[in-house]
């Protein structure tokens, strides 16, 4: 054993008293350490009394009986138990619910902020406006151009417009545009143009006023003022350059662009809450009621479909239009929620 190399001959009781090995032998004797210290005793007989005395010191210190207080353990536990139970009741009654509520509010706030951030982030690229059935909305674009959205129509555009890129709008439905002219005189650049993408057409303008009506498979473009160019989105082919007063209709199924007999100005009458009926058949008007005001209409008098009217009628709401139709064509209109059944009035 390596430990045996140690010279214990000069050890005093104090040395033994502070020796970790000796202490553990005294307090926890086992075969190994007993054999070891007995051997030490044999090798250095002179120190045996010192060892014995140190042993007794250690035993004396270790063997002190624990101090026992006069007051009892159960009594103290009673006090502690009463206090912790009161604490638990308080926790249960007030603090926990408050903590829970705070946690709930905290997570609700976190979710709200997260949702808001996601919303903001999703809106980063594009902004979208939608006008519901029978509603109109006026939107001022980043370049101060104004778009009036008719009912059931949507525009989308990039939130920020860079000055070196054309201004671009995506349209579904009907809208009237008053585009601000940003080009300097005689310095026309590609980036000065304003572009409306609608169905499969690209309409490119400078400063101008025009109406675009995209319903079902047709797109009507009516230029009130300025100049306007129509291209096919897919091919980029130039279809037409419009002059003020021109009104054209493009059919996306037949890819045909036809001149409209109606005046261009008549097609923006809706922005003044009117409908200019010149050139409209009853069927056209019913389509407007369906597309812009969200009705479903069944006409039970097919012979009336191609009948025409002229003049301007108020169109603050669908009832205005229906009232006029009813009177002029002598119709009976049955309404079930948004479903209209129109038939000739049998009893005039």
């Amino acid at each position: 054993m390596e430990k045996q190399q140690k010279d214990y001959s000069q050890y005093t009781k104090i040395d033994f008293f502070t020796d970790d090995l000796f202490i553990s032998y005294v307090l926890h004797p086992d075969e190994e350490n007993m054999a070891y210290w007995e051997l030490i005793g044999k090798n250095f007989p002179g120190i045996v009394p010192e060892m014995e005395e140190a042993r007794h010191w250690i035993l004396a210190l270790n063997g002190q009986s624990a101090y026992r207080p006069s007051a009892g353990k159960p009594e103290l536990w009673q006090k502690i138990a009463a206090e912790i139970q009161a604490h638990d009741r308080r926790q249960l009654r007030y603090i926990r619910p408050i903590k829970r509520a705070a946690r709930w509010i905290g997570s609700a706030a976190a979710i709200f902020i997260l949702g808001w951030m996601l919303h903001e982030y999703s809106q980063q690229g594009e902004k979208e406006h939608y006008a519901g059935y029978g509603a109109q909305q006026e939107i001022v674009l980043p370049d101060e151009s104004v778009v009036t959205l008719n009912g059931n129509s949507t525009i989308r555009y990039a939130r920020t417009w860079k000055s070196d890129k054309p201004r671009e709008i995506w349209l579904q439905g009907e809208a009237y545009f008053t585009v601000k002219h940003v080009a300097l005189k005689n310095r026309l650049q590609q980036s000065d143009s304003f572009r409306v993408h609608v169905q499969d057409l690209d309409i490119t303008v400078l400063g101008t006023r025009f109406n675009v009506r995209n319903r079902r498979t047709t797109t009507e473009i009516s230029l009130v003022e300025g100049s306007l160019r129509i291209n096919q989105t897919a091919t980029g082919a130039l279809l037409k350059v419009l002059k003020p007063g021109d009104a054209f209709i493009y059919d996306s199924t037949s890819h045909e662009l036809k001149s409209l007999e109606r005046k261009a100005v008549a097609n923006k009458a809706w922005t003044n809450n009117e409908i200019d009926l010149d050139g409209y058949t009853l069927e056209d008007i019913l389509h407007i009621l369906e597309d812009t005001y969200g009705y479903e209409i069944t006409l039970q008098a097919p012979e009336l479909a191609q009948k025409r009217l002229s003049g301007t009628i108020p169109a603050h709401n669908a009832e205005d239009i229906l009232f006029v139709l009813k009177k002029v064509f002598n119709l009976r209109i049955n309404q079930k929620s948004n479903h209209l059944t129109i038939s000739p009035n049998q009893y005039p």
Binding site: V48, P49, E53, H56, L59, A60, L61, G63, Y67
Partner: peptide, 19 residues
């Protein structure tokens, strides 16, 4: 409250008291 060991083979009772 010292409680002294039970094996006093090498040390007298008197000596333990002194300790």
């Amino acid at each position: 409250n010292f409680q002294l060991g039970h094996d006093h083979t090498l040390i007298s009772q008197e000596r333990l008291q002194q300790i």
